[in-house]
């Protein structure tokens, strides 16, 4: 056998193993992640209706549906097929897994996009996953649960009561900064203020307010885009891709 054919065969075996077991493990992960709510809905004795879940899911799809498809498309060229199954289960792709892969490639001096680079990034993501699982288990699973059991009830109540505005305040700013699209941010602000005002005076509208705001902003941001920089696909500068750990 020639050397080239041997390399080809070895890498073929790697691709086969990772895509087969990557898919199998991801499907099992999917099962466990859905088993938890399934238990609450069907076996815990809580009064949760299927129709209510469908409504909630439809509302989510209206808001995040585009992201569900766009995110895998965006990361595929960077991660490569084998790492896709790792990344979308471990999470924190842009702020943890991508830097881990890049640092590993730089450390041993290989280029991204090469086969050696791919193996380095797979190993780096395994390393990152190990550290991440260990720190989550120790600091959140064990210490965090203990911490929650000793903090006073009124603090617990404050956290529960005001968690949404607290998280969204920081997240909105982070999203605006990392997207680097001031025009879209301004449109989102104007649309949101209008939508929230309407919902304030006309309560039933509140049910749809998030979806309406998101769809209206997406359409307006596209129609009112800066045609000088975003006119045709070829004009898009490579480094204009958002960096953010937004989604």
């Amino acid at each position: 056998m020639t050397q080239a054919a041997e390399i080809h065969q070895a890498l073929g075996a790697f691709d086969k193993t990772t895509s087969r077991w990557g898919r199998i493990t991801m499907i099992i992960g999917l099962f466990f992640s859905l088993a938890a709510p399934a238990y609450l809905v069907f076996f815990a004795g809580l009064d949760i209706e299927i129709a209510g879940i469908i409504t909630a899911f439809a509302a989510l799809a209206a808001v995040f549906g585009v992201i569900w498809i766009v995110e895998p498309l965006t990361y595929f060229p960077i991660l490569g097929a084998s790492s896709m199954y790792q990344a979308f289960m471990i999470g924190n792709i842009s702020n943890k897994l991508l830097p881990a892969a890049m640092i590993a490639q730089a450390t041993i001096g290989v280029k991204p996009g090469t086969r050696k680079g791919e193996l380095a990034s797979v190993a780096a993501i395994c390393g990152a996953a190990t550290v991440h699982l260990a720190s989550l288990f120790i600091f959140v699973g064990l210490l965090g649960t203990w911490l929650v059991s000793v903090i006073p009830t009124d603090i617990v109540q404050t956290i529960q009561f005001y968690i949404l505005p607290t998280v969204m305040g920081a997240v909105v700013v982070q999203a605006i900064v990392s997207q680097k699209a001031p025009r879209s941010a301004l449109i989102a602000l104007v649309v949101s203020v209008i939508v929230v005002s309407v919902a304030f005076f006309f309560k039933p509208f509140g049910l749809f307010s998030t979806a309406v705001a998101v769809i209206a902003t997406a359409v307006l941001a596209w129609v009112l885009r800066d045609r000088k920089t975003l006119g045709t696909p070829e004009d898009v500068p490579v480094d204009a891709t958002p960096e953010g750990p937004v989604y």
């Binding site: 995040f64 997207q179 989102a188 602000l189 998101v214």
Partner: peptide, 18 residues
Amino acid sequence: LVVPGAAMVAAFMVLGIG
């Protein structure tokens, strides 16, 4: 480049302002 980013910012913005 434009649509998903705008959608995300809008989702967080309207939930926060609400």
